[in-house]
């Protein structure tokens, strides 16, 4: 991931590090529990959500529901995706991959059910939204975490990648 736009190693102040790590852990907590709650509920299925999908992905969502095998795969990916991404963010494991994966997942949720004018959903939102909703904000926060990684300072990545990150740091300092 060592491209120019996103340096592998950054220097943070205490407060910056605390803020970014806290954000990472909280988002991880949220995604992890969303995943685990689905895993624990034998009746959970994304079908009801998918049937409510509007806008450009409505047709795709309905064809997923129509095919029980595909629906099963989507359910599986959802449950385990959320769980593993959440766990990775919390533990700081492959932190930047997890940030990107979480961002993609949240953007899928956003674009499947965007709060655009004129779109009516059968299930109510838990707040009031126009164009921007919490999925979009959380996806954006994960982008921030991707640009400002912390898992190599606070997290398992620090222990795992301590050797290969060494030269990069030398270059930067």
């Amino acid at each position: 991931m060592g491209n120019k736009a996103v340096p592998v190693s950054l220097k943070y102040t205490n407060n910056q590090l605390i803020g970014l790590s806290l954000l990472r852990v909280l988002i991880g907590w949220h995604l992890l529990y969303e995943g685990v709650a689905k895993l624990l509920n034998p009746y959970w299925s994304s079908a009801a959500y998918l049937l409510d999908v509007q806008w450009i992905f409505s047709g795709l969502a309905k064809s997923i529901v129509a095919n029980p095998v595909v629906l099963g795969i989507v359910d599986y990916l959802n449950m385990w995706g959320l769980t593993l991404i959440g766990l990775a963010l919390m533990l700081g494991l492959l932190g930047r991959y997890a940030s990107i994966a979480g961002m993609v997942l949240l953007l899928i949720y956003y674009f499947f059910t965007p709060p655009l004018l004129g779109l009516e959903y059968s299930r109510p939102w838990e707040g009031s939204y126009i164009i921007v909703n919490k999925n979009l904000i959380e996806a954006c926060a994960l982008y921030v975490l991707y640009v400002f990684p912390t898992s190599n300072i606070i997290g398992l990545d620090r222990l795992i990648f301590r050797n290969n990150t060494q030269p990069t740091e030398d270059l930067l300092t």
Binding site: S21, V25, W29, L32, Y33, L87, M90, L91, G92, I153, I154, G155, L156, D157, R158, L159, R162
Partner: peptide, 15 residues
């Protein structure tokens, strides 16, 4: 090093 690497583990535990 280990403390920093595993700093968030307790939070996972709490969850």
């Amino acid at each position: 090093e280990i403390l920093k690497g595993l700093a968030t583990l307790p939070v996972v535990g709490v969850l």
